[in-house]
Design a protein around this nucleic acid. Structure first.
Lengths: 257, 257
DNA sequence: CGGGTGCTTGATCTCTATCAACTGGTGTGG
DNA sequence: CCACACCAGTTGATAGAGATCAAGCACCCG
């Protein structure tokens, strides 16, 4: 089967909330089509009609909004197992660009297929909806990051977020992970200029918090980074700790209906 | 009937997408309970269990995240007709505070009732989901605002957003609207210090863009504000222009199922 | 009347942006 | 194989935006 991406997505969902076997099967049997991208490739352009949404199988993806004349704000990063365009499930066109930061494989699923599935299976609908709400929670924390924290802490917070999310999908080894981002991209993510990001990142290194080897990032003093940046992983909703159980209720309801 | 808030919420939904009569009725017959707040009152505290979500009937509401030691980032404003806590529909506790900026009346609806309704009526589920996605779109634009724009433009952008949203609910008269915010709150919304917000706001006034009379804001040169801040109301998804029609599909599906 | 809150102002300092130049690696074409 | 361009990263100097500090004013309310 070609739906590794959807399997990974299901794994993400069930880390957070129960998902009965037949609902998983239903997701896995969604019609889909694989596609590969190279670093720098645009996956969804601004204004492009949004008829499909994609799930990341491997690689690294950014969503970025352009501000004339020449500013870019990265809104989110997506790693394997993430659903990328559920955010525009009900919109006709994308208002921001989605592109690959590294060689990336995604799987495309038509919106109608997802909506039909959601209409048939309230449990799936809730799981997907919940996933978009978790994404929204991350957007909010990014607003806080960019709006309130100083440069070094912004970077630390971003690294801790990526560390935590990559840890959940098994992509962290010995406190180190691959981060296929140029410093320009990092700067756009945390709302800093390239030069200032570079210098602040060096401060983080001098402070013993971070090491880099090529595109590998090693968090050598997570505790300090957490302390200074005020990072608290709750907003990521990676597990079920702060998530309501809904599958039972929905089973009952859909059985009644 | 006491569900003026829900009527206003339905009006908001149908500005964006079709909602058959019986679905409207179903929303209107949700169990609910009114509550009034004074300016400054906390509506939902940090860590409070989220069992209900509320809809604003009148007044003005903020959601704010605190950053130790003493920083606050306002994440969103809510005006009459908005649903406030759909964002935590599936979460057990609130990770940020929600409070009233002015005397405010809301209507509380239990989460289970909403989830049951959504499970029974895919059209309603979609409309609510869409509403949370529209909110998420606003979160993203706020990230851009605090991350990329300069002080004066941030304020202009915020004013234009509120102008546009208030216009949609008929709360704008002669380019003026009531904005029951202290300058401290405005500063927390756009990621500026109080002092700098004050001075930047005065620049906006001197530039002929804005006038204030007490808590009334008058946009005297919207065109200039739009030009400088790059405001484009599309991200608000106030009408159906960029929203997919989904009610027919869902009708069919739910009839089949 | 006193005290609180919200707004305003000026001086100063810090952080971040901008400008400009240089390095090192990579890839390409002659 | 070298010359060249190009990109990512780095560095230093300078400028500007925004934060902080401190004080004072206006208003409302008990």
């Amino acid at each position: 089967m070609s739906n590794i991406a959807l399997s990974k997505y299901i794994e993400k969902l069930i880390r957070r909330s129960e998902l009965p076997h037949r609902d998983r099967e239903a997701i896995l049997s969604l019609p889909c089509r694989e596609q590969d991208y190279l670093a720098g490739d645009t996956i969804v352009g601004i204004g492009a009609p949004t008829t499909h949404c994609c799930f990341v199988e491997s690689g690294f993806v950014s969503r970025v909004k352009r501000v004339p004349p020449d500013l870019n704000q990265i809104l989110a990063f997506h790693i394997p197992g993430d659903g990328v365009d559920l955010q525009s499930l009900f919109f006709t066109a994308s208002d921001h660009k989605i592109y690959a930061n590294a060689p990336t494989r995604v799987v495309w699923v038509p919106h109608e297929a997802i909506l039909e599935l959601a209409a048939e299976r309230p449990v799936v609908a809730n799981a997907l909806w919940l996933d978009t709400l978790a994404d929204a929670s991350i957007f909010r924390e990014w607003t806080v990051n960019v709006g309130q924290r100083r440069a070094v802490d912004r970077i630390a917070h971003l690294f801790l977020e990526l560390y935590t999310r990559l840890l959940a999908i098994g992509a962290v080894h010995d406190e180190s992970f691959e981060l296929p981002l140029t410093q320009t991209a990092m700067a756009d993510a945390v709302g800093l200029s390239l030069v200032h990001l570079n210098k602040s990142l060096q401060l983080l290194k001098k402070d013993g918090c971070v090491q880099t080897k090529g595109r590998i990032v090693i968090l050598t003093d997570k505790a300090k980074m957490i302390r200074h940046s005020g990072f608290d992983s709750d907003y990521l909703y990676l597990d079920g700790k702060r998530v309501k159980a809904f599958s039972e209720d929905c089973e009952v309801v859909s059985a009644v209906a």
